[in-house]
Design a protein around this nucleic acid. Structure first.
Lengths: 151, 151
DNA sequence: TATTGTTATACTCTATAACTATA
DNA sequence: TATAGTTATAGAGTATAACAATA
């Protein structure tokens, strides 16, 4: 990106922000998986990808405060979806791991929300969908990159 | 979009969903400034575009229940950002209008979150940004289109 | 003394149910 | 009888502050 952002780049950023906010709100509503909150599913997904993590790592990764993560983990543990184990070296820390039922629930939850989003996407043309597809990997990078990182 | 969705279309949908959710969460955090909630800013923005609207119209447009919209409007009225006036024909209805200070606050709020998002986007290449730009109008349509509408 | 995690507490946002007033 | 809006109340989710255990 250029250092100086053009006028209609700004407009695109603004529209992107508004659309992302709105889509996310509707996706959150779509999460008919009654027993699991959005944050719980995010954490479960992260644990599935990473294998295991400590509460502090999870809190940083999910942009929530440690006490909030404690609560999320407690909920997941109550539902039998994660295990909390002592860290082998550092006894202050806790290692959180997803259990096998978690994988099934995660897959089902993703399937439902993907289906909802796919339903929306059916309304666009082939070319429009091609444009979105091309942008998806970039959006993924933007969504997961650190905001403080300056060149 | 084709009726039958291919395997990697599904993967793209899934990644899109996850990225949108994550970006939105981080954008929400970015808006700590004005003591205006995400929903309040959304409503204000909609009023600015539409000129005026009734609480029920706003509730439907923002996917919240009427009592929630009552509260959002009350907050905005307390802050002097909207006016509530009786509907000229139907005395059951209320017409909500944004005041002049709202425009300034709205512009400032957008500027801050746009700047944050633009900061993230500075990290991508020209080609990547071009891909996102091409997708923005489509995402906007997807975000605002009715999910029930079947062809 | 710093760090990891937790508990206690309060706040924000939203929803459901019940009510008022118009139509 | 139906609709627009509100009030009352409850629930989910998160944050800050204070604390315990360990490094």
């Amino acid at each position: 990106m250029p250092e100086l952002i053009a006028e209609d780049d700004l407009a695109a950023v603004s529209t992107l922000r508004a659309s992302v906010m709105r889509l996310a709100r509707r996706l959150r509503h779509q999460q008919v998986e009654h027993s699991l909150s959005s944050a719980e599913i995010q954490v479960l997904g992260r644990l599935e990808r990473a294998g295991h993590a400590t509460p502090t790592e999870l809190a940083r990764a999910e942009d929530v405060q440690p006490p909030s993560m404690t609560r999320i983990i407690a909920m997941l543990e109550d539902k039998g979806l994660v295990r909390r184990e002592p860290h082998p070296q550092d006894r202050r820390q806790v290692v959180v791991t997803a259990t096998e039922p978690a994988a099934q629930i995660l897959a089902e939850s993703r399937r439902m929300r993907d289906a909802w989003l796919a339903g929306l996407i059916e309304e666009v043309t082939e070319e429009e969908w091609a444009a979105v597809r091309a942008a998806v990997p970039v959006l993924e990078r933007i969504a997961s990159c650190a905001p403080r990182a300056r060149r």
